[in-house]
Each structure stands twice: as structure tokens, then as C-alpha cells.
Amino acid sequence: MVETAAMILPHEGNAAGTGVVTITPAAFASRLSIRARAEAVAPLSRALGVKLPDAPKTSAKSRNGKRTALWLGPDEWLVIDEAGADLMAPCAKVKQLHAAVDISHRNVALIVSGKGAEAALKAGCPQNLSLEAFPVGACSRTMLGKVEVVLVRDDAETFRVEHWRSFSDYVFGFLAEAIRDPVI
């Protein structure tokens, strides 16, 4: 019998920081891409224990706060479970029309935190990230430098930067370079 394979995340060892901002890799999380017609939203929300939000650029959290559902498009959600739970199984029980695809390993994330977090992202993200335009809980697919990311604002000074696995070096490299600039 061979031993069970271990997971190796691409951001292992990637960390950077200054007095006003830190960049740390997010721990492994399970993730689900959900596509669904309107009638499936409620049953899927129930099955997953987190409301699939219906307003653009918003997210919702489960009661224990470990599971987040992000509105990405009018019929598209990204569900992130920081406890790493199986998200496919609960969806399989939902009969209403939808598509669930496990993307736990497609995406990885960096956590950008601190007073300078917003400024660090503004080095490469053309969206308005002010608290008024992008409040706590806001989320969006957008661009950071030359790659696509999904941003979630966890609190006023903390962003989760989700991106595809192979872009890890770029995203980390970009943010590490951006935070050298002391202006916030």
C-alpha cells in the first residue's frame, strides 16, 4: 500500500510584509463553482448552509463564518470553505437545475492585510476599492496587474486575493513589489 499523497500548495513559503501591510498565503480551502438557474438557488443555499447571494459584488457567510459564497455573475457563485469540507456531496442532492464543479485546487489565495492593504491592491487593480465602493463583504472578479483575480474584502483592512494556481508566482511577486512603495 502506498502512502497517501500530501498536498503541496504553490504559495508555501510566500510571505512578505512591511509596517503597514502583510501578505500571507491562505490555508487550503475547498472551493466550488456553482452555476444555477434561479429556482435552484434556494435549495442550493440550504444544501450548502450558506446563502448564494443575489446582488452583484456581494458575498455571504455561513453561520460559523467558515464558508463563504461569492456572487461572481448572475448565475455563477464561488463557494469557499476554509475548513476544506466536501462541497460536491451536498450539491449532488439538489435536484433543481445547476452545475457544480470542484475547483478546490484550481484556485489558491493570498491574504493581504493591514492599513496598506487597499493601497497594495490599487497598485494593479483598476476597480474602485474604497470602502464606499467596495465595502466589507464585497467581492468581484477583476484584474490585478496582468492576471485575473477574485477579490473579497474580509474587513476594512483585509482582502482575500483568489487566483489560479499557476499565477501564484506572479501574484505574489506583484504584491511583494507593490508593497515596497510606502505610500498608502
Binding site: P74, Q127, T142
Partner: peptide, 18 residues
């Protein structure tokens, strides 16, 4: 860079996203 109103996101977003 243009600013484009996405009818699905219901707000203006920068051209780089489009």
C-alpha cells in the same frame, strides 16, 4: 481606459475587465 456599465453587475467597471 473606458468605463463601461455592465448591465449584469449593475455598475461601471474599468475597460481592463472587458
Amino acid at each position: 481606459m473606458l468605463l463601461i456599465y455592465c448591465p449584469y453587475c449593475q455598475e461601471e467597471r474599468p475597460e481592463l475587465e472587458f
